[in-house]
């Protein structure tokens, strides 16, 4: 029983760490901007947060620095893709390389240094006493609790508000919004920066959440899994949650299976989440019967008033 509880609660922690990035990317792609640099931004968020935590021992400040890092990188990305209308794939790769390199460069001094400061698990009174569900859902850290609210808010925002309607239109046909007097450029800037901040928080989940250290390239493809999940979930935060939980479960399964099947090489378990991502991604996004996909029509197309 304790095994199942630790497996599921581990799955939840893993899921949340990719969901921040996933929801950020969802908003960004809904706005028509494909940000391939998720992994780089996550790493930058992880390293700046951790560095601040080590040097100031102030968790709130560290979190603010994470938000700030995300915002700055988002601003750079928005400038390149919206103002300069550059190719978004190329920009994403540049962001990825930049983030990976800079995070490794900056984080050299704190690699292997213990911060002893993280988002501690807080047991919620009464709720955490419920058998099975309590320890899984209500003995987590603040970042996980926040996610319980972010998903419904995101769903409500995208599908039930006037702003959400505009957001969806922004990714489908920005020219319509422009004709309606909306500032397409400002809106895209806003959503890119929001998305990027969320990706940076994902990084903080990795370095200041369940695991509490920094090593170069520590996100190990989580940013890409988040990116894959967005298309996998049809740009819907609720499906994203389900997908993330599934992947969290698969990747935590390895350590549990290892106890029962010690003869299987551990590499098989570490490869599981990646294999699962590829297979699930092909099955979910494959165009097997010319079906309609939910991909925003203008995704990765720069908006140019001249070529309207």
């Amino acid at each position: 029983m304790t095994l199942i509880i630790s497996l599921l609660s581990g799955a939840l922690v893993y899921a949340v760490s990719v969901m921040y990035a996933g929801i950020g990317e969802t908003f960004s792609e809904r706005a028509g901007i494909m940000n391939l640099g998720v992994e780089g931004i996550m790493l930058m968020g992880a390293v700046t947060g951790y560095m601040t935590a080590v040097s100031t021992q102030n968790l709130a400040l560290a979190f603010l620095v994470v938000l700030f890092t995300g915002a700055v990188l988002g601003l750079v990305f928005a400038f390149l893709t919206v103002t300069l209308q550059s190719d978004q794939t190329v920009c994403g790769m540049a962001m990825l390389t930049f983030g990976t390199g800079l995070s490794g460069f900056l984080g050299k001094n704190v690699a292997g240094v213990a911060a002893n400061l993280k988002f501690e698990n807080i047991a919620i009174p009464f709720l955490s006493d419920i058998p099975v569900i309590g320890p899984i859902l209500f003995q987590q850290n603040l970042l996980v609790y926040a996610m319980y609210f972010i998903v419904p808010i995101a769903m409500f925002y995208i599908y039930r508000t006037r702003y959400g309607l505009k957001l969806r239109a922004l990714g489908e046909n920005p020219a319509v919004l422009d004709a309606g007097g909306e500032n397409v450029f400002a809106m895209r800037y806003g959503y890119i920066i929001f998305g990027s901040v969320m990706m940076a928080i994902s990084g903080a989940c990795v370095s200041l959440g369940s695991t509490n250290f920094w090593s170069s390239g520590m996100t190990a493809g989580k940013g890409w899994i988040a990116f894959a999940l967005v298309a996998f979930s049809s740009w819907n935060p609720l499906y994203l949650t389900l997908g993330a939980l599934l992947f969290g479960f698969i990747s935590c399964l390895g350590s549990t299976l290892q106890i029962y099947l010690p003869n299987v090489p551990t590499e098989i378990y570490s490869a599981l989440p990646y294999v699962a991502t590829v297979i699930a991604f092909i099955l979910a996004t494959g165009n097997f019967r010319k079906k309609h996909t939910a991909q925003p029509e203008s995704l990765a197309v720069p908006y140019d008033r001249e070529s309207r």
Partner: peptide, 10 residues
């Protein structure tokens, strides 16, 4: 090296 590469590309 990676940092310089990324910056050059940006």
């Amino acid at each position: 090296a990676t940092m310089i590469q990324g910056t050059i590309m940006l």
